[in-house]
Write a protein that binds this DNA or RNA. Structure first.
Lengths: 212, 212
DNA sequence: GCTATATTCAAACAGTCGTTTCAATCGAGC
DNA sequence: GCTCGATTGAAACGACTGTTTGAATATAGC
């Protein structure tokens, strides 16, 4: 057997959740697409809600780790990397997720957008917890690349960027994800720089080349 | 009678849609909250889908008209207003919407966020149609205030701004909407200005001159 | 008064939902 | 061979969904 019943259910659920939404997708749709029995999902996962969470955890870890690794690489290569490099480490992995030969990643980003819009408290809290340490890490890195920034304002602006990223990825069909990512990084960097006191022109090496 | 059945249904639907979501909210919940009969929604609106659209239209018209009026006022006062003024005409009415004594506006913004995340094509197309002329009007005004901007990139950046605005308003509880709006306008203006001269990818583009 | 029209109401319709049940099947360990 | 636990299967459960029906009621014009 190529894939276990568990994996087939997860794959089918991810695809259908992205296409239709969480609550409008029925277990019968999922099990039929996965060529599994209806009772299998309750047997393997316990409930529909537990299945939803399982779908998330499988991908979120990969995305956030990719972001952090990219950030660490940048921090290793350069003691204080340019703002664009930090932003790119946050934006690019998300965009790259949508670029694979299969469109698993693209599907997942649709789900992520849904999760943000969803009021489902259980889901929302699980996602925030999953994101928390990543957001803190990037806030620090941005603050380091942006001398003179006020922390409160910075946190707010980080929300602007997350919003722009999430909305854009859910909205556009992303034929040219790389170009959009590059645009967003440039836009966000300019937005951030435009709101700090203009004294800080220290050693900011302005690279327009977004690393790969 | 204080309110007609129609209005009571619209109010209840708006509140429940924002709290729960479109498809998980049942007509029985809505009519019970509105103290109306179950059949009333089908009698007055035709179907659940039509009710959803009606909930949107009631607020979107007001918001978009407020935006356009604010833009026209700015254009009347000054032949070519500053970029910040144009952006403010777009951002401020939305923020003001969330500032009422009750939190009707805040609720509606949650719904708007939901609608964008939703794949529902019918809803999505209706909203785009509702927004189209407003977006075009603002794109023109921004282009006029931003000489040298490329139209394709500008449209993309406008999506960034809409995303940042929608996400921010749906996420934060907006105790200080005025300050957040001002931050977003400044952020967006800097983001836009920071990407106009970047036509030449090779040359060492001079650091950004952030006016104002 | 009466008659139309507009609105409300309780009830039922035909489906779909997530979950449960219990028998049937599979796959090692012996 | 056999047994035993893990998995799958078909069917049914009770609850909920949006919608429709047809009678009851309110409201207007005359």
């Amino acid at each position: 057997m190529a894939q276990s019943t568990c994996d087939r259910i997860l794959d089918a659920a991810e695809r259908l959740f992205a296409e239709e939404g969480f609550h409008v997708t029925s277990l019968r749709q999922i099990t039929q697409a996965a060529e599994a029995n209806l009772a299998a999902v309750n047997y393997h996962f316990g409930s529909k809600q537990a299945l939803i969470l399982a779908v998330f955890r499988r991908r979120l870890d990969a995305l956030n780790q990719a972001r952090l690794e990219r950030l660490e690489t940048a921090l290793d290569a350069e003691q204080s990397p340019a703002l664009e490099v930090v932003l790119d480490a946050f934006v690019y992995p998300a965009m790259a997720f949508t670029q694979g030969s299969d469109d698993e990643g693209h599907r997942f980003m649709r789900i992520l957008m849904r999760a943000f819009a969803d009021q489902d408290d259980q889901l929302h809290r699980a996602l925030s917890a999953e994101y928390a340490h990543v957001m803190r890490r990037f806030a620090d890195a941005i603050a380091a690349a942006l001398p003179g920034a006020r922390p409160a304002q910075l946190r707010r602006q980080l929300d602007f960027i997350v919003g722009a990223l999430t909305y854009t990825m859910a909205e556009s069909h992303l034929k040219d994800a790389r170009s959009i990512a590059s645009d967003l990084v440039q836009f966000a960097a300019a937005g951030l720089r435009g709101t700090v006191d203009s004294r800080s022109h220290s050693g900011a090496t302005r690279t327009l080349e977004i690393a790969k």
